[in-house]
Design a protein around this nucleic acid. Structure first.
Lengths: 94, 94
DNA sequence: TATATATTTAACAGTTAAGTTAAATGTTAA
DNA sequence: TTAACATTTAACTTAACTGTTAAATATATA
Protein backbone atom coordinates (compact mmCIF):
# COMPACT_ATOMS: atom_id res chain seq x y z
CA UNK A 1 0.00 0.00 0.00
CA UNK A 2 1.92 3.04 1.17
CA UNK A 3 5.63 3.34 0.69
CA UNK A 4 5.93 3.81 4.44
CA UNK A 5 4.24 0.48 5.09
CA UNK A 6 6.38 -1.26 2.50
CA UNK A 7 9.69 0.14 3.73
CA UNK A 8 8.84 -0.59 7.33
CA UNK A 9 8.05 -4.17 6.35
CA UNK A 10 11.38 -4.44 4.53
CA UNK A 11 13.33 -3.00 7.46
CA UNK A 12 13.29 -6.28 9.38
CA UNK A 13 15.83 -9.00 8.53
CA UNK A 14 13.47 -11.89 9.29
CA UNK A 15 10.86 -10.45 6.96
CA UNK A 16 13.41 -9.95 4.21
CA UNK A 17 14.51 -13.54 4.63
CA UNK A 18 10.88 -14.66 4.34
CA UNK A 19 10.63 -12.78 1.05
CA UNK A 20 13.84 -14.42 -0.15
CA UNK A 21 12.37 -17.82 0.68
CA UNK A 22 9.16 -17.06 -1.16
CA UNK A 23 11.09 -16.10 -4.26
CA UNK A 24 11.42 -19.80 -5.01
CA UNK A 25 7.68 -20.34 -4.74
CA UNK A 26 4.85 -20.40 -2.27
CA UNK A 27 5.23 -21.98 1.14
CA UNK A 28 2.93 -22.95 3.99
CA UNK A 29 3.20 -20.84 7.14
CA UNK A 30 4.50 -23.82 9.10
CA UNK A 31 7.27 -24.52 6.63
CA UNK A 32 8.31 -20.89 6.75
CA UNK A 33 8.29 -20.99 10.54
CA UNK A 34 10.41 -24.16 10.60
CA UNK A 35 13.06 -22.37 8.63
CA UNK A 36 13.61 -19.92 11.48
CA UNK A 37 14.51 -20.37 15.11
CA UNK A 38 11.78 -18.09 16.47
CA UNK A 39 8.30 -19.27 17.36
CA UNK A 40 5.52 -19.78 14.84
CA UNK A 41 3.57 -17.03 16.53
CA UNK A 42 6.35 -14.57 15.83
CA UNK A 43 6.54 -15.67 12.21
CA UNK A 44 2.78 -15.36 11.93
CA UNK A 45 3.02 -11.74 13.00
CA UNK A 46 5.79 -11.08 10.50
CA UNK A 47 3.62 -12.64 7.82
CA UNK A 48 0.71 -10.39 8.73
CA UNK A 49 2.94 -7.31 8.49
CA UNK A 50 4.13 -8.44 5.06
CA UNK A 51 0.53 -9.14 4.04
CA UNK A 52 -0.65 -5.71 5.21
CA UNK A 53 2.11 -4.22 3.09
CA UNK A 54 0.82 -6.26 0.15
CA UNK A 55 4.24 -7.86 -0.24
CA UNK A 56 2.72 -11.32 0.07
CA UNK A 57 -0.70 -12.84 -0.15
CA UNK A 58 -2.16 -15.96 1.32
CA UNK A 59 -4.41 -18.75 0.18
CA UNK A 60 -5.84 -21.29 2.54
CA UNK A 61 -5.89 -24.87 1.31
CA UNK A 62 -7.35 -27.15 3.89
CA UNK A 63 -5.31 -27.04 7.05
CA UNK A 64 -2.55 -25.07 5.42
CA UNK A 65 -2.18 -21.42 4.58
CA UNK A 66 0.17 -20.85 1.70
CA UNK A 67 2.03 -17.61 1.29
CA UNK A 68 3.16 -16.26 -2.01
CA UNK A 69 5.35 -13.33 -2.99
CA UNK A 70 3.82 -10.24 -4.52
CA UNK A 71 6.72 -8.08 -5.56
CA UNK A 72 4.71 -5.70 -7.71
CA UNK A 73 4.40 -3.18 -4.89
CA UNK A 74 8.15 -2.74 -4.95
CA UNK A 75 7.85 -0.70 -8.11
CA UNK A 76 7.19 2.58 -6.31
CA UNK A 77 10.20 2.08 -4.07
CA UNK A 78 12.42 1.12 -6.98
CA UNK A 79 11.41 4.31 -8.74
CA UNK A 80 12.08 6.45 -5.72
CA UNK A 81 15.45 4.84 -5.04
CA UNK A 82 16.49 5.11 -8.67
CA UNK A 83 15.53 8.74 -8.73
CA UNK A 84 17.44 9.36 -5.53
CA UNK A 85 20.45 7.63 -6.95
CA UNK A 86 20.41 9.38 -10.27
CA UNK A 87 19.10 12.75 -9.24
CA UNK A 88 22.42 14.12 -8.06
CA UNK A 89 24.53 13.22 -11.06
CA UNK A 90 24.98 16.72 -12.36
CA UNK A 91 24.94 18.60 -9.07
CA UNK A 92 27.83 20.96 -8.91
CA UNK A 93 30.28 20.75 -6.09
CA UNK A 94 30.67 23.86 -3.98
CA UNK B 1 27.16 -0.06 5.26
CA UNK B 2 24.88 -3.02 5.89
CA UNK B 3 21.62 -3.40 4.08
CA UNK B 4 19.93 -3.60 7.46
CA UNK B 5 21.28 -0.22 8.47
CA UNK B 6 20.31 1.32 5.14
CA UNK B 7 16.76 -0.02 5.13
CA UNK B 8 16.22 0.95 8.73
CA UNK B 9 17.35 4.46 7.89
CA UNK B 10 14.95 4.57 4.95
CA UNK B 11 12.02 3.32 7.02
CA UNK B 12 11.36 6.73 8.55
CA UNK B 13 9.40 9.36 6.61
CA UNK B 14 11.35 12.32 8.00
CA UNK B 15 14.63 10.74 6.96
CA UNK B 16 13.30 10.03 3.48
CA UNK B 17 12.19 13.63 3.19
CA UNK B 18 15.66 14.75 4.23
CA UNK B 19 17.11 12.65 1.43
CA UNK B 20 14.62 14.16 -1.00
CA UNK B 21 15.72 17.63 0.06
CA UNK B 22 19.38 16.77 -0.38
CA UNK B 23 18.74 15.57 -3.90
CA UNK B 24 18.81 19.19 -4.98
CA UNK B 25 22.17 19.79 -3.35
CA UNK B 26 23.83 20.07 -0.01
CA UNK B 27 22.23 21.89 2.89
CA UNK B 28 23.30 23.08 6.31
CA UNK B 29 21.83 21.21 9.27
CA UNK B 30 19.94 24.28 10.40
CA UNK B 31 18.32 24.80 7.01
CA UNK B 32 17.25 21.18 6.98
CA UNK B 33 15.83 21.57 10.48
CA UNK B 34 13.92 24.72 9.51
CA UNK B 35 12.17 22.76 6.82
CA UNK B 36 10.53 20.52 9.42
CA UNK B 37 8.35 21.23 12.41
CA UNK B 38 10.32 19.12 14.83
CA UNK B 39 13.26 20.38 16.87
CA UNK B 40 16.78 20.72 15.56
CA UNK B 41 17.90 18.12 18.05
CA UNK B 42 15.52 15.59 16.55
CA UNK B 43 16.73 16.40 13.05
CA UNK B 44 20.31 16.12 14.22
CA UNK B 45 19.65 12.58 15.37
CA UNK B 46 17.98 11.71 12.07
CA UNK B 47 21.04 13.08 10.30
CA UNK B 48 23.34 10.95 12.40
CA UNK B 49 21.31 7.83 11.55
CA UNK B 50 21.53 8.69 7.87
CA UNK B 51 25.25 9.35 8.24
CA UNK B 52 25.84 6.03 10.02
CA UNK B 53 24.07 4.35 7.12
CA UNK B 54 26.41 6.20 4.76
CA UNK B 55 23.44 7.73 2.99
CA UNK B 56 24.78 11.21 3.60
CA UNK B 57 28.06 12.76 4.57
CA UNK B 58 28.89 15.99 6.27
CA UNK B 59 31.45 18.72 5.87
CA UNK B 60 31.95 21.43 8.40
CA UNK B 61 32.51 24.92 7.04
CA UNK B 62 32.96 27.36 9.82
CA UNK B 63 29.86 27.46 11.97
CA UNK B 64 27.90 25.36 9.56
CA UNK B 65 27.80 21.66 8.90
CA UNK B 66 26.69 20.86 5.40
CA UNK B 67 25.07 17.58 4.55
CA UNK B 68 25.23 15.99 1.16
CA UNK B 69 23.54 12.98 -0.35
CA UNK B 70 25.50 9.79 -0.98
CA UNK B 71 23.15 7.53 -2.86
CA UNK B 72 25.78 5.04 -3.94
CA UNK B 73 24.97 2.73 -1.02
CA UNK B 74 21.51 2.24 -2.49
CA UNK B 75 23.02 -0.02 -5.12
CA UNK B 76 22.85 -3.15 -2.99
CA UNK B 77 19.21 -2.52 -2.13
CA UNK B 78 18.30 -1.82 -5.72
CA UNK B 79 19.87 -5.11 -6.73
CA UNK B 80 18.05 -7.04 -4.05
CA UNK B 81 14.70 -5.43 -4.80
CA UNK B 82 15.11 -5.97 -8.52
CA UNK B 83 16.00 -9.57 -7.93
CA UNK B 84 12.95 -10.01 -5.72
CA UNK B 85 10.83 -8.58 -8.45
CA UNK B 86 11.88 -11.48 -10.57
CA UNK B 87 14.22 -10.03 -13.11
CA UNK B 88 17.85 -9.15 -13.00
CA UNK B 89 17.75 -6.51 -15.71
CA UNK B 90 19.32 -4.04 -13.36
CA UNK B 91 22.23 -6.36 -12.62
CA UNK B 92 22.77 -7.08 -16.30
CA UNK B 93 22.98 -3.42 -17.12
CA UNK B 94 25.81 -2.91 -14.69
C1' DT C 1 38.11 37.53 26.36
C1' DA C 2 33.17 37.13 26.28
C1' DT C 3 29.13 36.38 23.64
C1' DA C 4 26.30 34.79 20.00
C1' DT C 5 25.37 31.20 16.65
C1' DA C 6 25.16 26.36 14.84
C1' DT C 7 24.90 21.87 15.93
C1' DT C 8 25.26 17.77 18.73
C1' DT C 9 24.73 15.01 22.90
C1' DA C 10 22.44 13.61 27.25
C1' DA C 11 18.61 12.51 29.94
C1' DC C 12 14.08 11.51 29.97
C1' DA C 13 9.01 10.22 28.44
C1' DG C 14 5.76 8.13 25.44
C1' DT C 15 5.08 4.93 21.57
C1' DT C 16 6.02 1.20 18.68
C1' DA C 17 8.13 -3.23 17.69
C1' DA C 18 9.53 -8.02 18.31
C1' DG C 19 9.76 -11.82 20.96
C1' DT C 20 7.50 -15.34 24.37
C1' DT C 21 3.70 -18.43 26.17
C1' DA C 22 -1.01 -19.58 26.29
C1' DA C 23 -5.53 -19.47 24.45
C1' DA C 24 -8.47 -19.24 20.36
C1' DT C 25 -9.82 -20.33 15.60
C1' DG C 26 -10.32 -23.11 11.60
C1' DT C 27 -9.88 -27.58 9.23
C1' DT C 28 -9.48 -32.63 8.64
C1' DA C 29 -10.29 -37.08 9.87
C1' DA C 30 -11.45 -40.81 13.30
C1' DT D 1 -18.60 -35.24 18.20
C1' DT D 2 -13.93 -35.47 19.50
C1' DA D 3 -9.10 -35.29 18.71
C1' DA D 4 -5.19 -33.68 16.27
C1' DC D 5 -3.02 -30.39 13.46
C1' DA D 6 -1.97 -25.63 11.41
C1' DT D 7 -2.13 -21.09 12.20
C1' DT D 8 -3.50 -16.83 14.34
C1' DT D 9 -4.61 -13.80 18.19
C1' DA D 10 -4.10 -12.11 22.98
C1' DA D 11 -1.53 -10.73 26.88
C1' DC D 12 2.66 -9.58 28.39
C1' DT D 13 7.83 -8.25 28.64
C1' DT D 14 11.67 -6.04 26.96
C1' DA D 15 14.16 -3.37 23.76
C1' DA D 16 14.30 0.13 20.27
C1' DC D 17 12.51 4.48 18.24
C1' DT D 18 11.14 9.33 18.14
C1' DG D 19 10.36 13.29 20.20
C1' DT D 20 11.30 17.01 23.97
C1' DT D 21 14.24 20.19 26.86
C1' DA D 22 18.59 21.33 28.71
C1' DA D 23 23.47 21.09 28.66
C1' DA D 24 27.70 20.59 25.98
C1' DT D 25 30.78 21.49 22.06
C1' DA D 26 32.69 24.05 18.20
C1' DT D 27 33.29 28.23 15.64
C1' DA D 28 33.13 33.17 14.56
C1' DT D 29 33.08 37.77 15.88
C1' DA D 30 32.69 42.06 18.88
Amino acid sequence: MSMQQTLRALADPTRREILNLLKRGRMAAGDIANYFSITGAAISRHLSILREADLIYDQREGKFIYYELNASVLEEILLWLTDLKGGNEYAEKK
